[in-house]
Design a protein around this nucleic acid. Structure first.
Lengths: 162, 162
DNA sequence: ACCCAATAGTTTCATATGAAACTATCCCCT
DNA sequence: AGGGGATAGTTTCATATGAAACTATTGGGT
């Protein structure tokens, strides 16, 4: 749709300088580096680890809210919770007022994992961030906020041109 | 396990402030926003789009090099290339000197896509980056480089050669 | 009171992905 | 020359993932 596309028609694209690609590389490396640790240690997948993280902080959450807090969809949450319940790391309780809702919380076993995995994650994050000064960290966070906001609020961009 | 983990034992972890999680959200949103466009328009997957991007820039690459340039593994490349060849968007040529190598390049059909999809991608990137001033963009790139380097060098990355 | 659209969560099915095995070719070493 | 190991690329198999269908329950409108 934008007519200035024409002016770019023969522009070159180098993946190494293309923001979405760079973000993907960085994000994957960071996630993998951390995931390896908690996967080795507890056999947790990324969805499982996220669920444990939010339930440790806020027990008794309905699955719906867990999904929202972890940016996962309800299918992912349902499956990861099933596996965590299987392993007796999470328990489900019915809601008194609403029969559709199941309230989720960590079992003792789940809390033991939480208490060990959270410091591990924070420690690894700290190792990454050691590459940056405190001022740089603040800047990075601010820039990421701006970008995330921007991209989230684009909804539907141009769609179809010509 | 480092002993200073003990001092963090009861630290809280809030996903919203956890760098790997933040990166994951931002990266996924950016990729999805762009992927939607070229998927709608050409039915390209992310691996396919990356391959087209590097072949448009550097025709005649062996699959191995494409894998390295796109940060994908050789299985992913093999599959995406197969699908692109199927659609007559990419062609394979044998290497004169080394029978194991297949040299990849865009067909005319592939180049038509490249010529349309590259400006589109750059345009969308520009829309994202409109959230930042030129100075901020430079800073963001520098910070991402630092982090990526740091994380990459923490441990041996699995994958393939090198 | 009762219908029925909306919501919570699960299951199903079709596809994507990754690890490891496999095929073909090459190169180094004696 | 000619093995043995390395390399390029493909295939296989087992698992992960997402979209859409499905079940159960709720709450609002008439």
């Amino acid at each position: 749709m934008p007519s200035d596309l024409k002016t770019l028609e023969h522009a070159r694209l180098d993946l190494d300088h293309f923001l979405p690609y760079r973000l993907s590389i960085l994000s994957n490396r960071a996630s993998d580096a951390i995931a390896r640790h908690y996967s080795d240690r507890f056999g947790l997948s990324v969805p499982e680890w996220r669920i444990i993280a939010v339930l440790g902080q806020t027990p008794g959450m309905p699955a719906r809210d867990v999904a929202q807090r972890t940016a996962m969809d309800k299918v992912q949450v349902s499956r990861a919770v099933a596996s965590l319940v299987d392993a007796r790391r999470v328990k489900r309780d019915g809601d008194d007022a609403d029969g559709r809702i199941t309230r989720l919380s960590l079992t003792t076993k789940g809390r033991v994992i939480y208490d060990e995995v959270v410091p591990l994650a924070l420690h690894l994050e700290e190792i990454f961030l050691a590459a940056l000064t405190p001022a740089e960290r603040k800047t990075l966070n601010a820039l990421m906020d701006k970008l995330t906001d921007r991209i989230s609020h684009l909804h539907v961009i141009s769609s179809q041109s010509e």
